[in-house]
């Protein structure tokens, strides 16, 4: 009993291990129930299979989770990433144009401009939070409400199809047998890691998230750190937006990136970053995103209506947030202790 108690305490404190464990459990379930889940076939020199799908379909979420991690670590949250995904896709699509096989803007420029717009969206959120002092939920709510409107305005309210092949490479291309989107995730992860762990930015972010008052006493410029965190989160949403619109070969102001903000926040929480800010782990958030994606894939393969995934996600969120709650851990602890007392 005492052991169980200490295990619960430990699970609460070492959340990264816990999320690895959760991911392993889901995969193990599949291994037992659906052995073909792990089958990987090679077709035209490309890898195919459920596992590859998880990585490929989860790529936008993983990128998004990296950006969201930074914002959550400062003690904030960004609700507007879904609409930013839609805006980015719309900008890229409208720059490329609707002609078959050609583009109005060089691909590189179109993507760069679209990402620039995404970063600008993040910057806007950052200004509202850091300079005007609006609470993060509210500040990003504004772009959440208006963002889809802007995206629809750009696409003129229609779903814009893209017919320019080279653009598809981000979402559905392959390189060395692996999906290109996977390389994008890897690149974003490495850059993000270097940028936070090889400059002092990461330390500042954590420090502000843990104790913003004490951080002020050490001279950290909280405003600029937050501004940068939101801007980078916007940029990551933009990258996710490019991958998504490239994958579905269209831009849809209404539905692109729908629910993604919630999945991204959930990934961060599952990855062990406390939602009240502080210590963060990009790797954890990526694992969190993988948990969500493999959960979805698993549910698809069980034949349960895929919409029920939301119920499962809800239970996961409750479980995770309760495990993060000190009061809950204490309560469970004292329950176990009292039972032990009764047995003795």
């Amino acid at each position: 009993m005492k052991k169980l108690n200490s295990i619960i305490q430990k699970l609460g404190s070492n959340r990264l291990a816990w999320s690895m464990f959760a991911l392993a459990a889901i995969l193990l379930f599949n291994l037992i129930v659906y052995p073909e889940f792990f089958k990987i076939t090679i077709l035209d020199g490309h890898l195919y299979g459920s596992l590859v799908d998880i990585f490929r379909n989860g790529a936008p979420l993983m990128v998004l989770a990296i950006g969201m991690t930074l914002v959550v670590a400062t003690g904030g949250v960004d609700l507007s990433v879904g609409p930013v995904i839609a805006v980015t896709g719309a900008v890229a699509t409208s720059l490329i144009g609707l002609e078959y096989g050609s583009t109005n803007t060089p691909l590189f420029l179109a993507v760069a401009l679209a990402l620039g717009v995404a970063a600008l969206c993040g910057f806007w959120n950052g200004i509202l939070v850091s300079r005007i002092g609006i609470q993060p939920i509210v500040a990003t709510l504004i772009l959440y409400v208006a963002g889809r409107g802007v995206a629809q305005m750009i696409t003129n309210g229609k779903i814009m199809r893209i017919f320019y092949e080279p653009y598809f490479v981000f979402g559905s291309g392959y390189f060395l047998s692996l999906p290109v989107s996977l390389y994008i995730v890897l690149l974003v992860y490495i850059v993000a890691w270097l940028f936070t762990r090889r400059t002092s930015f990461g330390l500042y972010v954590e420090s502000i998230g843990i104790n913003s008052e004490a951080s002020r006493f050490t001279g950290i410029n909280e405003k600029n750190v937050k501004l940068l965190a939101y801007t980078l989160c916007g940029l990551c949403a933009g990258i996710a937006g490019i991958i998504i619109s490239s994958n579905v070969k269209s831009a849809d102001g209404n539905n692109a990136g729908l629910w993604y903000e919630l999945d991204a926040i959930l990934s961060v929480a599952l990855g062990g970053t406390s939602l009240s800010g502080g210590r963060f782990s990009f790797a954890g958030s990526i694992i969190g995103a993988l948990i969500i994606q493999s959960l979805t894939t698993t549910i698809y393969s069980t034949g349960v209506p895929p919409q029920v995934i939301m119920l499962v996600k809800a239970l996961v969120v409750f479980l995770v947030s309760l495990l993060q709650s000190e009061n809950f851990r204490k309560m469970i602890g004292s329950l176990l202790n009292s039972r032990k007392g009764a047995i003795q």
Binding site: L203, Y204, A214, T218
Partner: peptide
């Protein structure tokens, strides 16, 4: 106002120097 509780001793020591 002083300690940043979830950072390590090392990080708490170097933070002002880093800033």
């Amino acid at each position: 106002e002083g300690i940043i509780s979830d950072l390590t001793v090392r990080e708490n020591i170097v933070i002002a120097l880093q800033v």
